[in-house]
Write a protein that binds this DNA or RNA. Structure first.
Length: 563
RNA sequence: UGGGGCGUCGUCUAAUGGCAGGACAUCAGACUUUGACUCUGAUUAUCAAGGUUCGAAUCCUUGCGCCCCAGCCA
């Protein structure tokens, strides 16, 4: 209790930046970058990084670059470059005129490498990959110097030049930084910084037979762009000494520094690009934008909003501790946004026919229904009401348990914004399945209130008997296991949730929904938020993707009492 | 096993020597023409053991646990 003036503390990166500004480091500048490799689609972990990098720049009046870290031509592709830009923009961030490619720096990086050779700090090594590994040693045994370690500067220059001119086959030589083969940190055991790859690059084509490696390219790209705070994830922490070694040797004056934060993990999903790629390539999902994928494009197609993802990034915070975020947090973010903005509608997913025996045959009345219960400014719409209707099959039970507020023989419920109805008779098919309900309605309850003051516990959604059908896709978590990667003996794909997608082709929707434009969002009352699929919907034939369910304390309650 | 990093409610995250706070989740209740939303209340944490101090999540020591590193990937 007491006063609640507690200021939310700064995260550790904000503290570093504020300290840097106090001390005048980087002349007070803040310049970050988001540096994806274009070898896959961005996922929600990247969304965290995007929000962090662009957010920090925004907060401190700085800039954030978009930089493609495209130094490995064999895995990269322009399709990925396109998707990444689409995703960053959609999330709501703007790199303005600062879209860069590490590949644009190839000439400069080459010159830096030459400079390092001249300083006697890099050499051309002619060991094979296997030999390099062997010479490197392991955690407990130090590495041994390469026999090529002491080549002269002139010889190194000559060899490196010939590597660049394409004289040697792949793998014949590497350029290595000359640091310390006995370092306890294997990263410093003369790491290769250039390799020969006769491969076509998505931007530079066949201009280069050699390509720089990450450690060399990344820090120097940062320096070239005037980055001040180079923020990356924790697994790069070991490499920071190498980052500093390279920058110290080649950059004079203001220089970038690397800081690491912990990457995002979410339960019931996988996050690595390798695994996402496997899901796509082996057909476990329909593509990178399958709505079950935690890719930005998948979440977009599922119906998530940019705002909800930004909110999510804020809520999970920034730190160096391992984080495994509960899927519930993501769901909270999208529900909170859509609750405010999504107009309500009625759709019956699994229809059960209801005939109102005392309602005049052929009569149709238009009932006025609110588009949002808390926001009258969102207006109203008309929904036709008639003798034959559909309700949700789940909303009827012939022999209901205690606490069931919905329809049952002899019980009365309200039809949302319509009338009270009472179940008079249950009609079954030969197999004993309930196929139709005969009900009566109370004409005095039009609009949903009884003039005699009697109450009903349940309010059901419904659609008229002539409601159009629509396809509805119900998505659930892709994995049925909290950590699909936990079991090392089993492939994570074994834990895919068989019910992660349910397609309902005979759902009935209120008439207005038949004209719902692609990418529009609705709350189907009592069920969840839905998004009109932008790819598969056709004019007049929308397909609804379930973004997220509504919270459901009834089902939860049911789950408790056994079963 | 060598090196690096990290340990605060179930999950995230604050507190920077001075009342361990917030969010999510959970539970209970109020409200309700969505068993939604909203509102109210409640439970739950400083990895362990020593030490320094009037006072320790915070400083020191020793353990323990988890994560990362042995690609010519990023």
């Amino acid at each position: 209790m007491t006063t609640t003036n507690e200021t939310q503390g700064l995260n550790f990166l904000q503290e570093i930046i504020e300290e840097d500004r106090r001390t005048g480091k980087h002349a007070g500048r803040v310049h970050t970058r988001f540096p994806p490799e274009p070898n896959g689609y961005l996922h929600i972990g990247h969304a965290k990084s995007i929000c962090l990098n662009f957010g920090l720049a925004q907060q401190y009046g700085g800039k954030c670059n978009l930089r493609f870290d495209d130094t490995n031509p064999v895995t990269e592709d322009t399709d990925y470059v396109e998707s990444i830009q689409r995703d960053v923009k959609w999330l709501g961030f703007d790199w303005e005129d600062r879209k860069y490619f590490a590949s644009d720096y190839f000439p400069k990086l080459y010159d830096f490498a030459v400079e390092l050779i001249k300083q006697g700090k890099a050499y051309v090594c002619s060991l094979s990959p296997d030999e390099i590994r062997e010479y490197r040693g392991d955690f407990t045994t130090p590495g041994r110097d390469s026999p090529y370690r002491n080549r002269s500067v002139d010889e190194n220059l000559d060899l490196f030049h010939r590597m660049r001119s394409g004289e040697f086959p792949d793998g014949a030589h590497t350029l290595r930084a000359k640091i310390d083969m006995t370092s306890p940190n294997p990263v410093l055991r003369d790491p290769p910084i250039y390799r020969i790859r006769h491969a076509h690059h998505h931007r530079t084509g066949d201009a280069w037979p050699i390509y720089p490696l990450y450690d060399f390219a990344h820090c120097l790209s940062d320096a070239i762009e005037g980055i001040t705070h180079s923020v990356c994830t924790l697994e790069f922490e070991n490499r920071r000494v190498l980052y500093d070694w390279i920058v110290d040797n080649l950059i004079k004056g203001d220089r970038p520094y690397q800081y690491e934060f912990s990457r995002l993990n979410l339960n019931y999903t996988v996050m690595s690009k390798r695994k996402l790629l496997k899901l796509v390539n082996e057909g476990f999902v329909s593509g990178w934008d399958d709505p079950r994928m935690m890719t930005i494009s998948g979440l977009r197609r599922r119906g998530f909003t940019p705002k909800s993802l930004r909110d999510f990034a804020t809520r999970v915070g920034v730190s160096k501790t391992q984080q495994l975020i509960d899927m519930g947090v993501l769901e909270l973010c999208i529900r909170e946004d859509l609750n405010e903005t999504a107009p309500r509608a009625m759709a019956v997913l699994r229809p059960l026919k209801v005939v109102l025996e005392n309602y005049p045959e052929g009569q149709v009345e238009q009932l006025e229904v609110q588009n949002h219960p808390q926001k009258p400014e969102m207006g109203t719409r008309q929904v036709p009401f008639m003798r034959e209707l559909y309700i949700e099959a789940d909303d009827f039970m012939e022999d209901p348990p205690k606490g069931f507020f919905r329809l049952a023989p002899g019980k009365e419920v309200r039809l949302r914004s319509a009338y009270f109805i009472k179940c008079e008779k249950v009609i079954k098919d030969a197999a004993g399945n309930v196929v139709e309900l005969r009900c009566s309605y109370d004409p005095a309850t039009r609009g949903g209130n009884a003039p005699d003051g009697r109450k009903v516990k349940g309010t059901l959604h419904w659609v008229p008997g002539n409601a159009p059908t629509a396809e509805v896709r119900l998505y659930d978590r892709l994995f049925s296991m909290e950590d699909p990667e936990a079991d090392e003996k089993r492939e994570f794909t074994e834990f895919i949730n068989p019910d992660s997608l349910q397609v309902l082709r005979d759902a009935r929707v209120e008439p207005m929904l038949a004209d719902a434009p692609a990418e529009s969002r609705f709350q189907f009352e009592r069920q969840g938020y839905f998004y009109v699929d932008p790819k598969d919907s056709k004019a007049g034939k929308p397909i609804f993707n379930r973004t997220v369910t509504l919270k459901d304390s009834w089902t939860k309650e049911q789950g408790k009492g056994g079963k």
